[in-house]
């Protein structure tokens, strides 16, 4: 196995991790089932491609701008979620994926089916990143994203998402404005997917409409689902599995979609909580709170009890 090959697989794994975490915020946290996640990914990639290739912008400003645009469009594409009955959001997002890819395909400005070529690799102090350096760069971003999502998982933002996912009316009744929280979810997911798009586009240095079509969305969904919807580690593991599996099973390369499909079906059948969710369940039993948190709460409650003189 050559180093370059290893680096490429690693870069794809990490980009997929970012994508999976991003989709997980929508599906696992906020309960907004989106099946058009590749569209967000594509918007980040195309935004950066146009900014750098067509408008001649440098990589760094394009990075900022493309991620910002993705977040903004994520917000816009999240609008249906405010009105659509929950199970039909899926349809709306499939539609969004389809429309976005059609736009890439049929609007000249976006290069049509031949895409946009010649994206620059980022450079720092006049030195363009080598593949190795680029992999390190992606790694740094992945760390940032994992840290960020981990941090958010421990805030009232996350509890607001949880409430929204569990029951929209009840969430409203405790002060969670459902439109606002849906918009938060879509904006954050859009930002992260946009970042992934940017990283991917400048690694490949070309973008084509097909890179962001519906099957790609299914791939991202597979990562989240097999890893464990709503967990933090699950999507990361899912991303690695989905990226590496076709590489390991080289003979089965031609069967990629088939394998995705079967994995999805059987995960839903036998362990709907995914790998991480199921393992957690086996070890800790069915507690919704982590062990650490339970201990922490016990400590606080216990101290309180003594103060109250019990």
């Amino acid at each position: 196995m050559s180093l370059d090959y290893f680096l490429t697989v690693s870069v794809f794994s990490m980009i997929n991790m970012i994508l999976a975490l991003s989709l997980n915020i929508l599906i696992g946290y906020a309960g907004q089932v989106s099946l058009g996640h590749a569209a967000f990914f594509g918007i980040g990639a195309y935004a950066s491609a146009i900014l750098t290739v067509k408008l001649g912008m440098g990589y760094w400003p394009a990075l900022l701008l493309s991620v910002f645009i993705s977040g903004l469009i994520g917000l816009l594409l999240g609008l249906p979620a405010l009105r659509v009955r929950e199970d039909f959001l899926v349809l709306a997002t499939i539609g969004v994926n389809f429309v976005v890819v059609s736009i890439f395909n049929y609007v000249k400005f976006f290069g049509g089916p031949y895409g946009i070529l010649g994206l620059p690799r980022p450079s720092l102090f006049g030195h363009a990143f080598t593949t190795r350096e680029y992999a390190l760069y992606v790694f740094l971003w992945t760390l940032v994203v994992v840290f960020l999502v981990h941090y958010l998982s421990n805030t009232y933002l996350k509890l607001g998402f949880d409430a929204l996912r569990e029951d929209e009316d009840a969430a409203e009744s405790v002060g969670v404005s459902s439109p606002r929280y849906k918009m938060y979810a879509f904006a954050i997911a859009g930002l992260l997917a946009g970042l992934a798009g940017n990283l991917w586009a400048h690694y490949m240095t070309v973008v084509f409409p097909d890179n962001f079509s519906f099957p790609v969305s299914i791939g991202i969904l597979t990562m989240v689902v097999i890893g464990g919807v709503g967990t933090l580690v699950g999507p990361l593991i899912g991303a690695i599995i989905v990226t590496i599996l076709p590489e390991v099973l080289r003979f089965a390369r031609d069967y990629r979609m088939l394998i995705y499909g079967l994995i999805i079906v059987f995960t839903m059948f036998f362990m709907p909580k995914g790998i991480v969710g199921s393992i957690k369940g086996l070890i800790f039993g069915d507690t919704p709170l982590g062990k650490k948190r339970v201990e922490k709460v016990r400590r606080i409650a216990g101290a309180q009890g003594r103060i109250a003189g019990r």
Partner: peptide
């Protein structure tokens, strides 16, 4: 719940399409 059957359906569809291709 609603996510599981939906995701399963997507998985079934992906499997079927690819089987036909093969």
């Amino acid at each position: 719940g609603r996510i599981v059957p939906l995701v399963m359906s997507v998985g079934l569809f992906a499997t079927m399409e690819d089987l036909y291709r093969l």
